[in-house]
Amino acid sequence: MKHAINNQINQMKWRYFRQSAFFGLLRASALIITLALGGIIFYILYNGLSVISWEFISKPPTHSMTKGGIMPAILGTIYLTVGAISIGLPLGVASAIYLTEYAKQGKMIRFIKVGINCLAGVPSVVFGLFGLAFFVILFKFGSSILAGSLTLGFLILPTIIGASEEALKSVPQTFREASLALGVSKWQTIYRIVLPNALPGILTGSILGIGRAAGETAPIMFTAAAYFTAKLPGSIFDEVMALPYHIYVLATAGTNIEATRPIQYGTVLVLVAVVLGINLIAILIRGYMRRHKRW
């Protein structure tokens, strides 16, 4: 009798041990990721913080980019990101609505979806070359904000379509049925019931897209980014400097790579801050919408 009880207690201990061991493993994984992110941010801060000043973010570069600020690049990146989102978001959401709400499921749709997934796997430099051939040369947009925004817009399209599709699918079918059964048309059902409920999910996807659009170098290298221009863009047909490309230029092709090291780190810091800042705005909008969803 006593032996049986002891045996049971031992088993319980063993199970408890196994459970805590696995939980420990999961905790460790989460910790490693957090540490990696923290490490990167700390490293950038440590190296870059010293050059950050009002001058740095409000003045253009001087002395062949070894001194001065990076204001044109900051503005350029913001223009390009906003441009990419204003092209990618409507197009992506419209495609997702078509794919989930209207299209008859079948071979054609599967084919389109495979296509979209392939698009997601295309290396960004290929997007850059496509943008160069198509927008810059064929459409004669030149190297410009427009060409760069279009290229980045297409780059983030698969992300936005994917997230929007998921968001639309997560709206319960019963909402659609309830609306249609009232004699409300399909488009109105989508516009009034499905889209508002899917919007926070769609925005989450777009946030991922924003991060990518702001940080990519290859797609804008041939389509929008200028090596150096002190002049701010006057229209969407002008070239701009952009943060990722500026970093690339300073680190590989600058006039004095060693001397600009701190500026490089500073620029990286600003890029990270801009991306996080844009994300933050999107997160705030999403949060606002969730709170004001009147359920």
Partner: peptide, 25 residues
């Protein structure tokens, strides 16, 4: 469907206010 209404097995109000649920259609 405007003339032949339907009530479903599981209650399926819209995630809207009571007022707007009625006013919607």
């Amino acid at each position: 469907r405007k003339k032949i209404g339907m009530v479903f097995q599981k209650p399926n109000p819209f995630p809207k206010t009571i007022y707007n649920n009625i006013a919607y259609g």
